[in-house]
Amino acid sequence: MTNEIMDRNNLMRNWFNNDSWMNNFPSIFDNNFPEDSTLKTDIKETDKDYEVHVDMPDFNKKDIDINYENDVLTISGHRDSFNDHNDKNGDMIMSERSSGRYMRQYHLPAVDSKSIKATYDKGVLEVNLPKLEKKVESGHHIDID
């Protein structure tokens, strides 16, 4: 299923990239859809925990919200990364910096939600989600009635 979705996405991307009208579309509009508009993430899983690293440059720690509910980690934040730099003549030619609300969700099951820890340093949010301990049941004898 995932491969089918990826194939469809690649097909659409190729169609847009090869379409002559899209290739001639004025480049001044390209910056309205920044490629870096999502929170880039690395997730590592060990036997004991999940480690989530999210690039969140220029966010203030107080503007980041982390929530874990129903096996879903939600990370959101608000960023105002720039002021209006136009002068009285409106001489700004281009602005690639973005502001606004960002959110990502990750399905990470069987987490001890009371032990989740997070740190934010140099634009990277790190969240450690310890897994619940699996109870290993030793076998037991069952009588037949």
Results as ranks from 00 to 15, higher is better:
Met1Thr: 13
Thr2Pro: 01
Ile5Glu: 08
Met6Gly: 01
Met6Trp: 10
Asn9Leu: 14
Asn10Tyr: 10
Asn10Arg: 09
Met12Ile: 15
Arg13His: 06
Trp15Pro: 00
Phe16Gln: 07
Asn17His: 10
Asn18Val: 05
Asn18Leu: 06
Ser20Glu: 15
Trp21Gly: 10
Asn23Tyr: 07
Asn24His: 08
Asn24Ser: 11
Asn24Thr: 07
Ser27Val: 12
Ile28Gly: 04
Phe29Gln: 05
Phe29Asn: 07
Asp30Asn: 15
Asn32Ala: 10
Asn32Cys: 14
Phe33Pro: 06
Pro34Asp: 02
Glu35Tyr: 11
Ser37Tyr: 06
Thr38Gly: 13
Thr38Glu: 12
Asp42Gln: 03
Asp42Met: 05
Ile43Pro: 00
Lys44Asn: 09
Lys44Glu: 01
Thr46Cys: 02
Asp47Met: 08
Lys48Gly: 02
Asp49Ile: 01
Val52Cys: 04
Val52His: 01
His53Tyr: 05
Val54Ile: 11
Asp55Phe: 09
Met56Cys: 03
Asp58Tyr: 12
Asn60Trp: 08
Lys62Tyr: 00
Lys62Ser: 14
Lys62Gln: 10
Asp63Ala: 06
Ile64Phe: 08
Ile64Val: 04
Ile64Asn: 04
Ile64Glu: 04
Asp65Lys: 14
Asn67Ser: 11
Asn67Lys: 06
Glu69Asp: 10
Glu69Phe: 11
Asn70Gln: 14
Asp71Arg: 00
Leu73Gly: 08
Leu73Lys: 01
Thr74Ser: 06
Ile75Pro: 03
Ser76Pro: 08
Ser76Met: 06
Ser76Tyr: 06
Gly77Phe: 05
Arg79Asp: 01
Arg79Asn: 09
Asp80Gln: 14
Asp80Phe: 04
Ser81Phe: 13
Phe82Pro: 02
Phe82Cys: 06
Phe82Asn: 10
Asp84Glu: 11
Asn86Trp: 03
Lys88His: 12
Gly90Tyr: 01
Met94Ala: 13
Met94Gln: 14
Ser95Pro: 00
Glu96Asn: 15
Glu96Pro: 02
Arg97Gln: 12
Ser98Gln: 14
Ser98Arg: 13
Gly100Glu: 06
Gly100His: 04
Arg101Pro: 00
Arg101Tyr: 14
Arg104Asn: 11
Gln105Thr: 12
Gln105Asp: 07
Tyr106Ile: 01
Leu108Thr: 02
Pro109Thr: 02
Pro109Met: 11
Ala110Gly: 03
Ala110Ser: 11
Val111Asn: 03
Asp112Ser: 02
Ser113His: 05
Lys114Met: 06
Ser115Ala: 04
Ser115Arg: 09
Tyr120Lys: 03
Asp121Thr: 15
Lys122His: 13
Gly123Tyr: 12
Val124Gln: 08
Glu126Asp: 08
Val127Ser: 04
Val127Gly: 04
Val127Met: 00
Val127Pro: 02
Lys131Leu: 03
Lys131Ala: 03
Leu132Trp: 05
Glu133Ile: 10
Glu137Met: 12
Gly139Trp: 10
Gly139Asp: 14
His141Met: 10
Ile142Val: 14
Asp143Phe: 15
Ile144Ser: 15
Asp145Lys: 15
